[in-house]
């Protein structure tokens, strides 16, 4: 991507300085790019090709063991796209869940970053350590611990509620209601995602020149105005990257949901797209169908990323 956007510029500047010459193939850049291209080709390219091929085949467990797969054209895609109760419901659910998670992650992350700018050295270190610990926690371990916190019989939450309200909350199942299941899931995901957003935002916000903010203050801009009109435009590209990353991470979330479904809840009412693909492929052995869902999903993600990336590039060029 960077090569295509940068190319016209070098061409232009070359034309201005030197008289036109015969173009030689740019050997050096491609040589330098080669190692990473090979790695990307093996790690990203091959799986994608395999996935796309598989999505046009009837690929079940027997095919895993070497039986030839039968080509079925667009059958898998047709089956997925007409499955309203399955695919579309799960997709809609994933989107709603993603929107809530991204909004909360960005909001809390930014607030924590702003807090860190105001804090003294000691407290800032304390907050940083706390964030780092949450960030370092593997998703699976984190989910299991949160599962214990919300455990029906022995969980902290139920015990506290019993003590505070005086009513018997023990045995209350938090995960059985899909809405509450996703509330717990949101807590787990936002808790795990805030540190990255907070650190990145903090890094960005501290780069804003102090004199600009000071000038704005002298001109009578209040804290809200300074944030909205000075700080946000300065870190806009960072925000864009963070939002795109969060959208993609939260859309394809797997570990947290999968582990939480083991702890409790009703699977068919709590599947998100990542878990759904896994169930279709790994659990039931319909690899062709799962492949088709994955390809559709990749296109959706590409569309989202493309929109935001183009948006950024356009703003840069203004």
């Amino acid at each position: 991507m960077s090569s295509t956007t940068l190319e016209p510029r070098t061409e232009r500047s070359g034309a201005a300085v030197r008289p036109p010459k015969k173009r030689r193939p740019p050997v050096l850049p491609w040589t330098l790019l080669l190692p990473s291209l090979v790695v990307l080709g093996v790690l990203v390219g091959y799986p994608i090709v395999r996935l796309v091929v598989m999505s046009f085949q009837k690929y079940e467990r027997a095919q895993l063991m070497g039986q030839p797969a039968e080509w079925v054209g667009f059958d898998n895609y047709a089956q997925v796209l007409t499955d309203v109760d399955g695919f579309w419901t799960v997709l809609l659910r994933s989107f709603l869940f993603m929107v809530v998670c991204v909004a909360l992650t960005m909001l809390i992350g930014t607030l924590v970053a702003l807090l860190m700018m105001r804090l003294g050295k000691g407290f800032r270190l304390l907050v940083s350590i706390g964030l780092l610990l949450a960030w370092a926690m593997p998703a699976l371990a984190g989910t299991v611990v949160w599962g214990w916190i919300f455990d029906s019989d022995y969980g902290v939450v139920n015990n506290l509620l019993t003590k505070i309200t005086g009513e018997n909350w023990l045995g209350h199942a938090w995960l059985i209601n899909p809405l509450l299941f996703f509330t717990v899931a949101t807590i787990i995901i936002v808790w795990g995602a805030v540190p990255f957003v907070a650190f990145t935002m903090y890094a960005g916000l501290t780069q804003i020149p102090g004199e600009v903010l000071e000038a704005a203050q002298l001109d009578g801009a209040g804290p809200v105005k300074r944030f909205r009109l000075i700080m946000v435009p300065y870190v806009r590209s960072i925000i864009t990257v963070l939002v795109v990353l969060s959208i993609i991470w939260d859309l394809r979330v797997f570990t947290q949901i999968y582990a939480l479904q083991d702890i409790g809840g009703i699977r068919e009412q709590t599947n998100t797209i990542g878990v759904y693909i896994y169930q279709m492929g790994m659990a039931q052995g319909h690899y062709g169908l799962a492949g088709a869902i994955s390809v559709i999903f990749v296109f959706i993600m590409l569309a989202i990323s493309f929109y935001y990336v183009r948006q950024t590039v356009r703003e840069e060029e203004l």
Partner: peptide, 10 residues
């Protein structure tokens, strides 16, 4: 910024 964006998306 451009590089950052493309690296991030990669």
């Amino acid at each position: 910024r451009l590089v950052a964006t493309s690296v991030a998306s990669t």
